[in-house]
């Protein structure tokens, strides 16, 4: 229901439990998700995902109507869904996040 969800959030398939951002959401914004007001503490970039429902650890994350991994932590409605709370069911995801922290590159 678009009037209850921010129009920057794109739903790819009806059974999905995540939305995809069609534009970034800035830190401090309050957005509507499924009729609820959600405060966004940190900036979330274009192409990233946000929870459409509460997701429990071990639950499958569904995008395009297909499982794209499993939650590793409780994820609340409207929270950023990414490598900090989801893992692959195939091979681990490699990032430069640790190197960035060490070298002070905020990106």
């Amino acid at each position: 229901m678009t009037d209850e969800t921010d129009n920057r959030l794109l739903l790819l398939a009806p059974q999905d439990n995540v939305y995809v951002l069609r534009d970034q959401i800035e830190a401090g914004e309050t957005i509507m998700v499924e009729g609820r007001r959600i405060a966004v503490p940190r900036r979330i970039g274009l192409g990233h995902k946000l929870a459409r429902a509460a997701i429990a650890p071990g639950d499958k994350v569904l995008k395009y109507g297909a499982p794209i991994g499993s939650a590793t932590a409780p994820i609340g409605l409207g929270e950023h869904v990414h490598t900090h709370n989801v893992k692959s069911d195939y091979t681990p995801t490699y990032t430069l996040d640790e190197a960035r922290r060490e070298h002070g590159d905020a990106q």
Partner: peptide, 29 residues
């Protein structure tokens, strides 16, 4: 899937994650 599991990493670069992709199966879809 077996080949990449042996190598320890999927066909997935750090920049994919920066752009919002979380897992290889998400990138695959």
């Amino acid at each position: 899937a077996r080949y990449y599991a042996t190598l320890g990493y999927g066909s997935f670069a750090s920049g994919n994650a920066d752009g919002g992709l979380t897992t290889i199966e998400e990138k695959s879809m």
